[in-house]
Simulated scan of single mutants.
Amino acid sequence: MDPSNYSSLHVFILLGFSDHPKLEMILSGVVSIFYIITLVGNTAIILASLLDSQLHTPMYFFLRNLSFLDLCFTTSIVPQMLVNLWGPEKTISSLGCVVQLYVYMWLGSIECLLLAVMSYDRFTAICKPLHYFVIMNPCLRLKMIVMVWSISLANSVVLCTLTVNLPRCGNNLLDHFLCELPAMVKIACVDTTTVEMSVFALGIVIVLTPLILILISYGYIAKAVLRMKSKAGQRKAMNTCGSHLTVVSIFYGTIIYMYLQPGNSASKDQGKFLTLFYTIITPSLNPLIYTLRNRDMKGALKRLMKVHHKSAEIERN
């Protein structure tokens, strides 16, 4: 593909891993597999938590929202990425690129805040068990979700609008496989210090503030678990909290490394692989982490499979 052929068109050229054609073939297979796992795993969690009355609790309400978010997050990226990996023309329209940028930032911000809300849910369940269902009532849960989506949308609008309005002087070569904010900032032909400082400042608010709240919540949770006299109670608390902490560690670790380092010092390929990890691999790991470590979810999925099996037998007969 000759980039000069597209210089006058309203498109962006996503270079991605085009300098490693053999790697692209491998990546297309890996991404397809993880995308299927993401679709199947998260859909199973949503269906199980909706159809099984035993999972109609605040914890699974938030887990259902996380699964829905992961489905939207990966679907906003993977189909376009696979088209570019499979085909010779690695392009995306200007409108498509802008939409992807806004949606990607919006959904990514939601995950940061939603994980903090889920940690508060676990804190309430373990530290205030007698008042858990009173505190985490449906009205409060709905308000939390609306707040998370609204704050994240405002963050996306501010950062993406600043980025989109940067003059590019005809440069439409994005050294990435998606329209990500750092890659868009890099092709600007003016000083981007103001935008970079804005990204860093809002990153502190959207990324580090929820992380601090999560750590505080788990500090109180750890104290409560250590005071429990029942070993079974300790194990149950550790299982439910362990799943959440695992997801938090994976997601926040890559996000902080990507967005909160001075001067964005990660190498080009390193940045691409990190983005690949937290946008494609992490959403596929979430359902595995929550189901393998959660006895209630495993039981719900088994019951769902039995109902499906019985229905299939009745139809055959």
Rank of each mutant, 00 (worst) to 15 (best):
L114N: 09
P88I: 13
P3M: 01
A224W: 03
M228S: 09
E315V: 09
A300F: 15
G87H: 15
L47M: 10
N5A: 07
F73V: 06
V190N: 00
D121A: 01
A224P: 13
N171V: 01
C112V: 11
I33H: 09
I221T: 15
Y60N: 12
T192F: 00
F177Y: 12
K90P: 00
V117C: 13
V195E: 06
A44D: 06
K223D: 10
I289D: 07
C112G: 03
M197A: 15
L159E: 09
L211A: 07
M59Y: 10
P3E: 01
V99D: 04
T57F: 10
R235G: 05
P262Q: 03
G253I: 08
V205A: 07
P79H: 09
A125Q: 02
S267L: 06
K229R: 07
C97W: 00
S28C: 13
F73Q: 15
S76Q: 08
M118Q: 01
V78H: 02
L173F: 00
D191C: 01
P210N: 04
V11K: 11
I126L: 10
R303H: 08
I214M: 11
F133Y: 06
L101C: 10
S4N: 11
Q234A: 11
T161D: 05
A224V: 06
L166R: 04
S32R: 05
N42Y: 00
L27V: 15
P287C: 13
I187L: 07
P79V: 09
V40W: 10
G263T: 00
S53W: 14
G263P: 00
G16H: 04
Y220G: 08
Q234G: 14
S53A: 13
S32M: 04
S94P: 04
L47I: 04
D191I: 11
M238E: 06
A266N: 12
L66P: 08
L15G: 02
M59F: 04
N155H: 11
T193E: 11
V117G: 11
P138H: 14
K302E: 05
H10T: 05
A224S: 04
K223E: 14
L159T: 03
I26F: 05
I110A: 01
V190F: 00
I45C: 08
Y278N: 08
Y120K: 08
K186S: 06
N84K: 13
D191G: 00
P129S: 04
K186I: 02
T75I: 01
F123G: 14
L39Q: 07
I214Y: 05
S7G: 10
N84I: 01
P79I: 15
S284F: 13
M238Q: 05
I26V: 06
M25Q: 14
M25G: 15
F277N: 01
L14E: 01
L130P: 00
L55N: 10
L9G: 03
I13E: 07
L71M: 13
R293D: 12
C169Q: 14
V134H: 13
I221S: 15
A48R: 02
H309Y: 09
N317Q: 11
V103T: 14
G108K: 09
L285N: 06
T91Y: 05
I255T: 03
P210T: 10
K223I: 14
T161C: 02
I212R: 07
H244F: 11
V158G: 03
E196A: 02
I151V: 15
V199A: 14
T75P: 14
